[in-house]
Amino acid sequence: MAGKRAAKQYQDERPAAPDGAAAVVLPADCRLAAQAALQAELVAALERGADVALDASAVERVDTAALQLLVLLRRELGSRDGALAWRGASAAFNEAAGLLGLARILELPAAGPA
């Protein structure tokens, strides 16, 4: 898979975040067409460290498929006692997560009463 190869490169290029978590920045357009690459990045992050830090502050467009990816990431992290940290999330991202009722599962800090 092309995605796996891409992931290897990221491994080399991206140092772990200062707090030890592997950081992944979500792209502006996070919809289905972009998700093979995103999935590879997330999987690579999972392989790299116990914790994963996500930055969704640049996200402009997001769909259910993307949020499902993150939910499954959170679930897998949880199963091995890893933590999910947020470096930021755009309004569009928060709105979508909230609407789908996934903000709490994703431990989004800005998530309101969802």
Partner: peptide
């Protein structure tokens, strides 16, 4: 045909 294209899976 469109659905067979990656870019149009969810469009």
């Amino acid at each position: 045909e469109l659905r067979a294209m990656d870019a149009y899976k969810g469009v």
